[in-house]
Design a protein around this nucleic acid. Structure first.
Lengths: 241, 241
DNA sequence: ACAAAAGTGTTAGGCCTACACCCATGA
DNA sequence: TCATGGGTGTAGGCCTAACACTTTTGT
């Protein structure tokens, strides 16, 4: 790591951070990963200590190949979650002159989608916590706005990319998938129409039943068909909801 | 303006720039505004002198309220074009560690749409020039990639926003509008289908003929209907081409 | 009169939407 | 046996895509 206090420029430079909106889905509700802000390590003054915020942190000018690398690195450091750089999609830049009280900081917000079932155990419960979208507390800095923008970006993207793949567990049911779409888009769909459409895409493979049953009629389990997924992704498709 | 050589930070900071992809349409072809790079004013070393590049420049940490303000200010300084901050739409961040040979510079790319007929005279011909998309030379830095990304962003956006409004002259013909859509999307449409769709949106007002005629049958002139435009924009609409 | 560009309307097919009944399970 | 949740197919409407001929004007 670089030493302190020796970086001199002819003109003022802003600090640059990358923030992460990590969405997860547990089969019932869409969730987002937040951290509790502690004492700052990198800045001489502290800000928003004890408040909830999006994971994220400063660009390492010498080491981070891109800001997506910053996002991945900081997410790992702050929450324990290890994601690949390409899992991060850019949401946008937040550069308001007063958004950080300490110095001029511009942040590039990213979002990522994870299979909650697969990663929940990896998140460091000391510092990070999964929140339902409806229960998100008020956040530090302008992170409320960043989160809102990330949600709308996700809502846009779901029309053109099979986002379900990344959020759903390996094996899932149609009602779960429908519920995810309904959570993200905040609408309700007709069961039959939803099933028809999804099946017509040909991206679902039925999985033989092996699981214990519970509560009511056991729904059919599916798995995503990787091959067709790639074909569709390449072509770009249209989810006309 | 701030003095030189006095800005000290505890950790390294990147320089931040905003670049502008300004699209214009002359009724025939989609164009983009480029500048010829001269001697650098702000950096101690020069880079890409004499090459074509996108207009843009460094964030003024103390004065620019957001990076969109940087984009607007730099565009004005470098090309003479004065656009409103809200005319800039963000394309994305380009942060590759080696994208600028001088120091670490991350840039936030923006695009803007202008009525070429209305602003062509404002562009300072000493430094700036409008290029057809097919004749764009190879550009400085990673500006080729930025331009490509801006084009695809524009192609995306045209499906959801009546982008024609911002690029077309006040009074225009349906063939001109169709040609714009074809230029942006790089496809051909059926004249009748295109006319039907546009008319059904109800955003076009016929303008009585007064112009001189030339070459062949005189096309009907239209003007955009601001009121319906706003209604549509608010609702969000779908251009299903 | 001929070539070039512009205007116009109809039809077929596909996709979205709405809708009702039966089945399996647990209480 | 009842309540809950899951599965399935069809009919109508709308939007998209394909398509040919006539009008105007300049040469």
């Amino acid at each position: 790591m670089a030493q302190k206090g020796q970086y001199i420029y002819e003109y003022p430079h802003p600090a640059v951070t990358a923030d992460c909106v990590v969405f997860g889905y547990d089969g019932k509700e869409l969730k987002v990963l937040l951290i509790k802000r502690g004492k700052e390590k990198e800045a001489s003054t502290t800000a928003y200590v004890g408040e909830w915020a999006l994971p994220g942190g400063f660009l390492d000018v010498e080491k981070d190949k891109t800001v997506a690398h910053t996002a991945a690195r900081e997410l790992k450091e702050e929450t324990g979650l290890k994601l690949s750089v390409k899992d991060f999609k850019e949401v946008g830049t937040f550069s308001d002159i007063k958004r950080d009280p300490r110095e001029r900081v511009i942040t590039i917000a990213h979002y990522a989608l994870v299979k909650l079932s697969a990663v929940e155990a990896d998140t460091d419960a000391e510092k990070a916590e999964w929140f339902c979208m409806e229960e998100v507390p008020s956040l530090a800095f302008d992170h409320d706005k960043i989160l809102r923008d990330a949600c709308s970006r996700l809502r846009q993207d779901i029309h053109f990319e099979p986002v379900g793949f990344e959020l759903m567990p390996e094996v899932f049911t149609l009602p779960q998938l429908q519920n995810l779409y309904e959570s993200i888009l905040e609408v309700k769909f007709d069961r039959r129409n939803f099933a028809n459409k999804m099946k017509h895409f040909g991206m679902l493979t039925e999985v033989p039943e092996e699981e214990p049953r519970h509560g009511t009629r056991t729904p059919i389990k599916y798995r995503f068909d990787k091959e067709n997924y790639e074909r569709f992704k390449a072509k770009g498709f249209q989810l006309e909801f």
